[in-house]
Design a protein around this nucleic acid. Sequence first.
DNA 1: GGTAATTAGAGTAAAATTGTCTTAAATTAT
DNA 2: ATAATTTAAGACAATTTTACTCTAATTACC
Lengths: 134, 134
Amino acid sequence: MLITRATEYALLSLDYIRKSDSPAGAEQLSEELNIPKSFLAKILQNLAKKEILVSKKGAKGGFILQKKIKDITLFEIVTAVEGRPAMVFDCTQYIDTCPNNGAKNCTISPFLTNFQKKIDALLRSLSLEDIIGE
Amino acid sequence: MLITRATEYALLSLDYIRKSDSPAGAEQLSEELNIPKSFLAKILQNLAKKEILVSKKGAKGGFILQKKIKDITLFEIVTAVEGRPAMVFDCTQYIDTCPNNGAKNCTISPFLTNFQKKIDALLRSLSLEDIIGE
DNA sequence: GGTAATTAGAGTAAAATTGTCTTAAATTAT
DNA sequence: ATAATTTAAGACAATTTTACTCTAATTACC
């Protein structure tokens, strides 16, 4: 799966948040969107760390958007939530057993790297506005 | 991960097989490419079932290509090896807890479906020749 | 017939994802 | 100030997916 459930939850939350007048709390989002609360809280925290959301603590706290939806890319969201860009493949994991000693003599490495770049570019080109509409 | 290790093993094997004069056996491929034998055997079986490889049993048996490399798409390979097309996302899994009762009122479903189609088209447009060269 | 190879299916192990819990820190309202 | 509310952080547990193994059967060559 290129995009995990966590990212799907993030997209749904971001759509809810941008439609909300006041800060939306984790509990509220959890109930409205039927997403496990503690899990969602983590996701929202990650979005806040990466400057996609602003978090407000205390009573009447919650989350609001930090940027316009056209200025938030899918690449940013995925990276924030999953802790790394969406990966197409990962032969780097077993580079130690690679019979070609890494990418140097690998027949498929150049292709896969290129493919990854294409997906990255696609994700960077898509804004939250593209996804959830204006 | 859009493409699993099994598909990577398939690509490496296909490259080896197409360079080989005689049928390449699972054991040989396993040793040359440093891939666990039993795991690889399953992958090769799947490629054979989906008419990408021809399998020859018995002594001097092994696998040979069934088509030209320009006529084998990455989509075919992934589908054969992983048992389904490469998935971009999967909210269908938890459709029962979806607050929008499935895709009908979902804010992100149209986008995700569209995104999936783009990836499918990309995978269908790429031949094995594109990946491993002529 | 005997050996070399694939086929088939169940089963195990490891890793990643998803989800929970508990405690602390910050902010607001009273 | 104090209580109530809400985020922050981190450890932990459950689930799912991926990766891999094993055994027995089948097929084909010599």
